[in-house]
Each structure stands twice: as structure tokens, then as C-alpha cells.
Computed example of a mutant assay.
Amino acid sequence: MILQYLKQEFEQETNSTRKLLQAVPEKDLNYKPSEISWTMGQLAQHIATIYYWYVGTLTKDVYDMAADHLERGDVNDIKATLALFESNVEKARAALESLTQDDLQNNWTMKVGEKVVLGPMPRGIVARGFLFNHIYHHRGEMIVYLRATGNKVPGLYGPTYEESL
């Protein structure tokens, strides 16, 4: 039952993420709120990249990020980031569809080379925290970036302030 809910949430939230990324204007891709922050383009690309991580997280018991070489493209090209997002969503969806309820119970570990950086912990916990919640966190950041640059924020859970004007 939980797996079915995760799949439904994935589809609903992917649509919201798409709307948010489509709202990112090319003219503001270099904006960053502080010296230590990512640019808007880097943040958009990171959000698109998280969907790629579904594959290693949902299909491998040990995911070594150092051994996984994702091509990301130009952070200053929002069309390329949107294409990356769509490609990664398809891969994520396939990985999610390959799961069984029992797979959610299996332990999963993330490594970078020989260093363990997350886990071991049940894959279901990782799916919620490292994948789903991670995206939501960065979408919240993107909303702040959009508002700080005077751009409209699309409604993700109902109308936004900008849409009510």
C-alpha cells in the first residue's frame, strides 16, 4: 500500500516540480542570494538531477556516487535543464515502477568512493528523506529565488499570492 502512495505522490509532485522549473527565467539564471548560495541555474539543475538519483537509490543496495557519472549540461541554459529533468523523471519513474513492497524494507547505503555518507537504512526511509523531501526542500529555495527576483511563483498546492492579483 505504501508503495502505491509513493508512486501517486511521485506523479503529483513531479508535475509541481515541472511547473516550478518552467517558471525559471533565463534572464535570472545567474542570480544568487548570497556568496555561498548556488545560482538559480545551479539550483534548477540540482533539482533536475535529484530525479536521476532515484535510479541508484531504488535499484541498488549500495549506491556509489563517485562511480556514477551523470552528464548535467549547462546551468545557464534552462531549456537544457528542463530536458535533463524530463529525461531523469522517466528514469526515476521506471526505477519506482520496478520496486516491490518488500524492496522498501531492504537496507540501502550511499557511498562516495569508500566513504559511507548515508545509511545503511531501509530503502523506504531513504526514498522519503533523500529523494522526495530533498526535492521539496530545494523547491522551497527556488520559490524564494523567484520571488527575490520579482518573478511569479506557480501554485503548487493551490493559488499563490501572485496568481491572486
Results as ranks from 00 to 15, higher is better:
Val89Tyr: 01
Val89Glu: 03
Glu90Ala: 11
Lys91Ile: 11
Arg93Ile: 11
Arg93Gln: 14
Ala94Gly: 08
Ala94Lys: 14
Leu96Gly: 00
Leu96Trp: 00
Leu96Ala: 03
Glu97Trp: 02
Glu97His: 09
Ser98Trp: 07
Leu99Pro: 02
Leu99Ala: 01
Thr100Ser: 13
Thr100Asp: 02
Gln101His: 03
Gln101Met: 11
Gln101Ile: 01
Gln101Ser: 13
Gln101Asn: 11
Gln101Leu: 12
Gln101Gly: 04
Gln101Cys: 05
Asp102Gln: 10
Asp103Ser: 15
Asp103His: 13
Leu104Asp: 00
Leu104Ser: 03
Gln105Met: 14
Gln105Glu: 14
Gln105Val: 11
Gln105Cys: 12
Asn106Gln: 14
Asn106Ala: 13
Asn106Trp: 09
Trp108Ile: 07
Trp108Glu: 11
Thr109Asp: 07
Met110Ile: 10
Met110His: 05
Lys111Leu: 13
Lys111Phe: 05
Lys111Ser: 09
Gly113Ser: 00
Gly113His: 03
Glu114Ala: 14
Lys115Met: 13
Lys115Asp: 15
Lys115Arg: 14
Val116Lys: 07
Val116Ile: 14
Val117Trp: 07
Val117Phe: 08
Val117Gly: 07
Leu118Ser: 13
Leu118Val: 15
Leu118Gly: 10
Gly119Pro: 08
Gly119Ser: 13
Met121Cys: 10
Met121His: 03
Pro122Lys: 05
Pro122Thr: 03
Arg123Tyr: 03
Gly124Val: 08
Ile125His: 07
Val126Ser: 07
Ala127Ile: 09
Ala127Lys: 04
Ala127Thr: 11
Ala127Ser: 05
Arg128Gln: 12
Arg128Ala: 12
Gly129Phe: 14
Gly129Thr: 15
Gly129Ile: 12
Gly129Lys: 15
Phe130His: 12
Phe130Met: 11
Phe130Gly: 12
Leu131Arg: 06
Leu131Ile: 05
Leu131Gln: 00
Leu131Thr: 04
Phe132Val: 11
Phe132Glu: 10
Asn133Ala: 09
His134Val: 06
Ile135Glu: 00
Ile135Gly: 04
Ile135Ser: 00
Tyr136Trp: 12
His137Phe: 13
His137Lys: 09
His137Ala: 06
His138Ile: 01
Arg139Gln: 10
Arg139Pro: 01
Arg139Asn: 00
Arg139Ser: 08
Gly140Tyr: 02
Glu141Ile: 14
Glu141Cys: 15
Glu141Gly: 13
Met142Glu: 01
Ile143Arg: 08
Ile143Phe: 15
Val144Pro: 05
Val144Gly: 08
Tyr145Glu: 01
Leu146Met: 01
Leu146Thr: 10
Arg147Asp: 04
Arg147Val: 07
Ala148Arg: 11
Ala148Lys: 11
Ala148Asp: 12
Gly150Arg: 09
Gly150Asp: 13
Asn151Trp: 00
Lys152Met: 14
Val153Glu: 06
Val153Ala: 09
Val153Ile: 08
Val153Lys: 06
Gly155Leu: 01
